[in-house]
């Protein structure tokens, strides 16, 4: 089991001087292949900062963020963009699908941006849509789908290709209890199939789908449940 995502003593400071905000303070965190980790904490605790750093959308003030063994800081702007397209999948609360594209086109987009031919990208997109149980909706536009269906498309887009890291930010926030549960079941099964997942949520019932639950307070990891793996304990040791 290896760490797909590794944050090593990561600090992120926004602003300077008087208005300085320490969003994360020396956080060490890992998500391994086959593992779903939930991050919980009140707003302002640093959950979203952790996720944006993990996705290479922001850079730490100090410390390192590695995805599949590559320190994101060693990659240029282009390299990071490529990493985001090929290794990292995002799932957002509000789905973030492009309304003018069909489900299959939305899912194929990251592949096409990465230079995969249109025909092959669409074929892979259909496979991914089948895996999330909505193959028959491939030619529908987001406006003609329910929230749960749109989130399934978003998950298909997050896992299409060989992406090993799924970052989900309150993915069930806009869905009813039962649909939300289906989405978690799906996320869970992607991790059981070998991906590493990070699920940011403030709902305990959703966090409970994870193997480990990490608690953030004021930018610090204060506690962790389910850390029965020795490696996981060692990884988090520095922040305890």
């Amino acid at each position: 089991m290896s760490a797909v995502l590794q944050l090593d003593t990561v600090t992120r400071i926004h602003g300077e001087g008087e208005t300085e905000v320490h969003a994360l303070k020396s956080v060490t965190f890992a998500a391994h292949d086959g593992e779903l980790v939930a991050v919980m904490g009140p707003s302002g605790s640093g959950k979203s900062t952790l996720l944006t750093l993990a996705g290479g959308l922001d850079a730490p003030t100090s410390g390192t963020v590695s995805v599949e063994g590559t320190d994101l800081a060693t990659l240029g702007q282009k390299g990071r963009a490529r990493m985001r397209r090929t290794s990292i999948g995002y799932v957002f609360q509000d789905f973030n699908l492009i309304p003018a594209l069909t489900a299959a086109e939305n899912v194929a987009l990251p592949l096409e941006l990465d230079g995969v031919g249109t025909r092959q990208a669409r074929a892979l997109a259909r496979v991914a849509l089948g895996e999330v149980g909505i193959a028959e909706l491939a030619d529908r536009f987001p406006d003609n789908m329910s929230g749960g269906q749109q989130q399934r498309v978003a998950i298909a887009r997050a896992v299409v290709g060989e992406r090993r890291l799924i970052l989900a930010d309150e993915p069930t926030g806009a869905l009813d209890t039962e649909t939300g549960e289906e989405i978690l079941r799906l996320l869970r099964s992607r991790c059981d199939a070998g991906a590493a997942g990070v699920l940011v949520t403030h709902e305990a019932r959703h966090a409970a789908w994870a193997d480990r639950v990490v608690f953030l307070r004021d930018g610090v990891i204060v506690d962790e449940t389910g850390a029965d793996r020795v490696e996981a304990l060692v990884d988090s040791g520095a922040t305890r």
Binding site: R188, A204, R205, A208, A210, V222, D223, E224, T225, G226
Partner: peptide, 20 residues
Amino acid sequence: IQQQRSATISALQDYTRLKR
């Protein structure tokens, strides 16, 4: 509070595993 939260979420994880 934190110790209880941790314990309750561990129980939730067990229930969720059963349910899964």
